[in-house]
Simulated assay, not measured.
Amino acid sequence: MSPSDFEPRPLDTHKPSSARIYHHMVTGEVIFESDLPFIQRLYDEIPFYPMWARHNRQFLARAVRYMAGNGIRQFLDIGAGLPTGGSTHEVAGEIIPQARVVYVDNDEEAINRARELLQRNQLLDTTAMIDADLREPERILDHPDTRRLIDFSKPVGLLLVSVLPWIPDASQPAALIATLRDAVAPGSHIAMTHVSLQDAGPEIKKQVAAGAAIFADASTPVTLRTRQQFETFFDGWKLVEPGITYATDWHPDQPLDNDDYARPCNFAALGNLP
Rank of each mutant, 00 (worst) to 15 (best):
D235M: 01
D145C: 04
D249A: 15
E116R: 11
F215C: 11
F75M: 04
R65C: 00
G69H: 03
I150T: 05
L124R: 07
G211I: 07
P264Y: 15
Q58D: 14
D151Q: 07
D107Q: 11
L160E: 08
T179A: 12
R73G: 08
I177C: 00
Y66M: 03
V163L: 15
T84N: 07
R139Y: 07
I167D: 03
A128P: 03
L36A: 06
V240C: 14
S171Y: 00
L224F: 09
A269N: 10
V26Q: 14
F32T: 06
R263Q: 14
I111P: 05
Y49G: 06
W237D: 00
P186H: 09
A175Y: 00
V222Y: 02
L141K: 03
H251V: 11
A269V: 08
P83W: 05
E108C: 00
E109F: 02
L82S: 08
P242H: 04
A53V: 04
T193F: 13
G187V: 14
F59D: 09
Y246Q: 12
D249N: 10
T223W: 03
N56D: 13
P47V: 05
V222R: 01
E94M: 13
D44V: 01
G85I: 07
P137F: 10
F233V: 01
P50M: 09
T220L: 14
Q98W: 04
S196A: 14
L76V: 04
A183L: 00
N258D: 15
P144Y: 01
I244K: 12
F234W: 06
A61H: 06
G79D: 08
R20I: 03
S17Q: 05
G201E: 15
T193N: 13
Q228F: 04
P50Y: 11
